[in-house]
């Protein structure tokens, strides 16, 4: 390619904006994962399937003649109850158990969800048309699909709402208290079981919003949930638990890094580059921690 991106500097702008818009959406899904991981100490392998299910709800509206953008209102409501239902049937049994058990349980849920979606919605790849049009920058040289801009704006909006809710609402305070110390919260009268159910429900609702946005920006298929799980897992690992600005920065950063690695190393190495970055970050962190320990000695 002879580094096409340097021959056409306008591609740098295009790649940065594409990465930014992509990253914001991934950051939203990752935020949901960080929330329930931090509070419940559960790695939800079925995160991607929740996203896809949310997308199918928006798609269902679309086939019924409603604009799929309304999915961002309907999907989280339905998904909240799906999340609470999942907690009440399966997750509550694994909350205080070994992390491995929760991974296994959510992996089971993920397989079940895939097969159920396949049976209910069929195995065709589907999309919902938003017809939002396109925005142009720099004399038509940079194109930005309005659907992606819409997704990014909605993602930021929902993330802000959740942050404010966590900070100022009674349930938000209870969730934060449970995350800090579940036992102490219980002693002080917090119904942690209810908090866990609500947390899982809120995570599912976030996935619902993200899914509705994916229906209008990308494609839906019962078996494409895994990339969303992996991506959000990576973002959370990089950002650290309970670090919301970190999740946002790491999501956007990874999105932009991914776009640039596409131009520099080729599309086939795009995802490999992201994983390589993850390894480097983890090794660097470990290195930093070990230095700290030595200092403390």
């Amino acid at each position: 390619m002879d580094f096409l991106i340097f021959q056409n500097p306008i591609l740098i702008v295009q790649a940065s904006l594409d990465g930014l818009l992509l990253g914001v959406l991934f950051a939203l899904v990752a935020y949901g994962m960080a929330l329930q991981w931090g509070v419940m100490n559960i790695i939800n392998v079925a995160q991607g399937e929740l996203v896809i299910l949310g997308g199918y709800i928006a798609y269902f509206l679309y086939t019924a003649g409603v604009h799929p953008a309304f999915g961002i209102l309907v999907s989280p409501i339905i998904m909240y109850f799906v999340g609470v239902g999942m907690y009440r049937t399966v997750i509550f049994r694994v909350v205080n158990r070994d992390l491995f058990i929760s991974i296994l349980a959510t992996f089971g849920i993920s397989i079940l969800a895939q097969q159920l979606m396949n049976t209910i919605f069929g195995s065709d790849v589907v999309i919902a048309q938003s017809n939002f049009g396109t925005s142009f920058l720099f004399d038509y040289m940079v194109t930005l699909p309005n659907a992606k801009i819409f997704s990014a704006v909605v993602s930021i909006f929902f993330a802000l709402i959740i942050v404010l809710y966590m900070k100022y609402s009674k349930l938000g305070r209870a969730i934060r208290a449970t995350a800090q110390n579940a036992r102490a919260a219980r002693i002080l009268g917090v119904d942690t079981d209810r908090v866990y159910a609500a947390t899982f429900g809120i995570n599912a609702a976030i996935c619902g919003v993200a899914g509705a946005l994916i229906a209008i920006t990308f494609t839906l298929h019962p078996y494409v949930g895994l990339p969303y799980t992996v991506r959000s897992f990576m973002i959370v690992i990089v950002a650290g638990l309970g670090n919301l600005p970190g999740v946002a920065i790491s999501g956007i950063g990874l999105g932009i890094f991914e776009e640039f690695s596409d131009y520099l190393f080729g599309t086939e190495f795009r995802i490999a580059c992201v994983f390589l970055l993850l390894v480097i970050i983890l090794v660097y962190r470990r290195f930093k921690l070990s230095r700290k320990r030595e200092y403390l000695k």
Binding site: M1, Q14, D18, V224, L226, P227, E259, T267, R270, I271
Partner: peptide, 11 residues
Amino acid sequence: ELNDMAATLAK
């Protein structure tokens, strides 16, 4: 696992 071709299309 990729469902975004924006970079390819920009090229």
